[in-house]
Amino acid sequence: MDVLISGASMAGLSAAWWFAHHGHRVTVVERSEGLRPGGAPIDVRGRALATAQRMGILAQIEAEKVRLLEPSPVLDGTGAQVATLDLRWFANETDEDIEITRDRLNRILRDAVSPEVEFRFQASIASLADSAQGVDIGFADGRQARYDLVVGADGLHSSVRRLAFGPEADYVRHFGHYVALVDLPAGQDWHRAMLNVPGLTVAVRDAGDGPQAMVLAASPVIEYDYRDPAAQRRLLDQFLARVDAWQVPAIRAAFADPAAQGFYFDSVSQTHMPQWIKGHVALIGDAAHCAALLSGMGTTLAMVSAETLATAWTAHGGDMQATAAAHDASLRPYVQQCQAFASQGAPIMVPATQQALDERNAMFRATAARFAP
């Protein structure tokens, strides 16, 4: 059968592998000109480890994982060290969990996908008409085609979800924060650490592919064009204007540079949907059930949901009602568990008040003492 996948990130690439593995004809469309570079290091955890094993890529992911460094200093608003953080104390579900850069995992997944899968970059879906015979797709370049199944793996701001299920506002819930990333200029002596003031985190980390800055800022919903980098940089500059210590001025300059590589800005949000399949259209990954960056489970859910959908659809011979029931029964409890992790991560990563920040730092110090050799 013919499957169209929208989006070529972790969910889309995983889906391409699984649908091709089950013998279907697969086409992947991606709005960008290639695999999107950059992004924070991500985790392959829990059920995704078994998924990667069945895909035959677990050993490669393990070989290219982020090598954890020494614990990172935690700084206050003046740049003074007040605690120490080792993510191994908090981040993993199991001892086997793997952290890897987004670029490396993208490459591993893309290389694993069958050469029979067709990739169309700088291509996107403009219209979608579902019927008993399948889904008639109109592409942005004017082409048209019919598919037995359309999979929306196109992220938090999914066009497939909007076309098939309705407006983004019906499903995406702002989690109270914004996140930004940028690759920092090489050749400078960047100090790896995490600075916190209430409602704001600024961190520098090098996961093996060069130094990167991350900002997490508490904020209500802000109206802006999520496809306008200039508007995003202006918002981010307002967040960073609160702090003038440590390396924040240099980090602020890096974020403001339009030529900077790896720039990313978006809301920290979750996707909550009563159903992920409607007619012959299915959603996976962040489009269906984004768990939010603070959960650490987004990549895991992307990979697991791709396998679950492709396996269920194949097992039920394309019967969408049976597929939906099997997919939901297998995945929804896990999605709910993963989304709950975000509520646990927020007080650790972005304490909202000075009291919460002081208590968090005291917890870090106590944990560091407990793990000290």
Rank of each mutant, 00 (worst) to 15 (best):
D86C: 04
V74P: 04
E99Y: 08
A256T: 14
E99F: 14
M320R: 00
Q238H: 11
D189V: 03
P249Y: 03
M273R: 10
D266Y: 03
P220S: 05
Y226I: 11
R67H: 15
L149Q: 12
A207N: 04
V26Q: 10
M10F: 15
E223M: 09
A83P: 09
D148G: 15
D111P: 05
L293N: 09
G317C: 13
I57T: 06
P198M: 12
Q133H: 11
E93F: 07
E99C: 13
P115S: 13
P347E: 02
G23S: 13
R162W: 02
L35D: 06
G39V: 00
V150N: 12
G56A: 14
N92W: 15
P373C: 04
L184H: 06
A324G: 01
F364C: 04
I98W: 10
M320P: 08
G199V: 10
E96P: 00
D244M: 12
A132Y: 00
V248M: 07
T78G: 12
F239E: 04
A50S: 15
M349H: 10
L181D: 07
Q232G: 15
E33C: 06
G285D: 01
A129F: 06
N196I: 03
A129S: 14
F239Y: 14
M55K: 00
S159M: 06
I125V: 15
P249T: 00
Y264Q: 04
A83R: 04
V172I: 13
G39N: 09
L4F: 05
F175A: 01
D111T: 04
P333M: 07
P274K: 11
G34R: 13
R370N: 08
V304E: 09
A91R: 10
L105N: 11
P229L: 13
D189P: 03
P274Y: 04
Y171L: 06
T27V: 15
F371Q: 06
V150L: 15
G345S: 03
F265A: 13
P333S: 04
R252V: 10
T311Q: 14
S131Q: 07
I98K: 10
A340C: 01
A256N: 14
F119H: 12
A16L: 09
A180P: 00
P73H: 06
A346F: 14
S6V: 15
W89G: 02
R36P: 05
F265E: 15
V28L: 11
R360Y: 01
G318D: 12
R107V: 03
R252A: 12
E96Y: 03
M303K: 01
V335R: 04
Q321I: 03
D141G: 07
L294I: 06
M10C: 06
F239K: 07
T271Q: 05
H327T: 03
A329G: 12
A50G: 05
A140R: 11
M297C: 08
H280M: 02
